[in-house]
Computed example of a mutant assay.
Amino acid sequence: MITGAHTIVHATDAEAARAFFRDVLGLPYVDANDGWLIFKSPPAELAVHPAGPADNGRAELYLMCDDLDATMAELGAKGVEFTSGVSEARWGLITHLQVPGAGEIGLYEPRHPIAYDLT
């Protein structure tokens, strides 16, 4: 059956984006072939949200953390560019950050029950 999930981030500068995930976020990786890095993702969960016609089928990537302020301070010290302030939603605290050579991804501190540690 299903053994995992493979997330793809499209980047106009794939090398810069790979360096970000490797060097800044410190994600472990394997080199699949000549620098084509595949990263180990943090534990993950999947949510399905209602969508309007323009959003149908669109996927988003959010990294989760236990303490948004502390994580932002740590990443900011490594030069990470945050593209939004922190906002509070009923499901958590959220911000966005720039992946060099790619686009924005979300970062949030969940305030909802989490599913990634279910067995």
Results as ranks from 00 to 15, higher is better:
Ala47Tyr: 12
Val30Asn: 10
Glu60Met: 02
Leu25Glu: 11
Gly101Val: 10
Gly35Gln: 07
Trp91Thr: 10
Leu27Tyr: 08
Arg18Val: 00
Thr83Cys: 09
Pro50Lys: 07
Gln98Thr: 12
Trp36Asn: 15
Pro28Thr: 03
Leu97Ser: 07
Leu46Ser: 04
Gly92Ala: 06
Pro50Val: 01
Gly92Asp: 01
Ala73Leu: 02
Phe82Gln: 08
Ile94Glu: 10
Val48Thr: 05
Gly85Asn: 09
Leu63Ala: 06
Arg18Asp: 06
Arg18Cys: 09
Gly92Ile: 06
Gly101Phe: 06
Asn33Arg: 14
Glu60Asp: 08
Trp36Ile: 14
Trp36Ala: 15
Gly103Lys: 05
Val48Asp: 01
Leu27Ser: 06
Asp55Met: 13
Arg58Pro: 01
Pro28Leu: 11
Ala51Ser: 14
Leu61Ile: 14
Pro53Arg: 00
Leu46Ala: 11
Pro43Gly: 12
His96Ser: 09
Leu63Pro: 01
Ala54Glu: 15
Ile105Met: 08
Gly101Cys: 13
Gly76Val: 09
Met64Gly: 10
Phe39Met: 10
Ile38Ser: 10
Phe82Lys: 09
Ala51Ile: 06
Glu104Cys: 04
Phe39Glu: 09
Asp66Ala: 15
Trp36Lys: 15
Ala44Thr: 02
Arg22Ser: 13
Tyr29Val: 00
Arg22Glu: 12
His96Tyr: 07
Glu74Gly: 11
Gly79Asn: 13
Leu68Asn: 03
Ala47Phe: 13
Leu75Arg: 12
Cys65Ile: 01
Ile105Lys: 00
Asp69Ile: 10
Ala73His: 04
Glu104Trp: 00
Gly79Ile: 11
Val86Asp: 10
Phe20Lys: 04
Leu68Gly: 05
Arg90Asn: 15
Ala59Gly: 05
Leu63Met: 09
Glu45Ala: 12
Gly79Arg: 07
Asp34Arg: 15
Gly76Tyr: 04
Glu74Trp: 12
Leu25Ser: 11
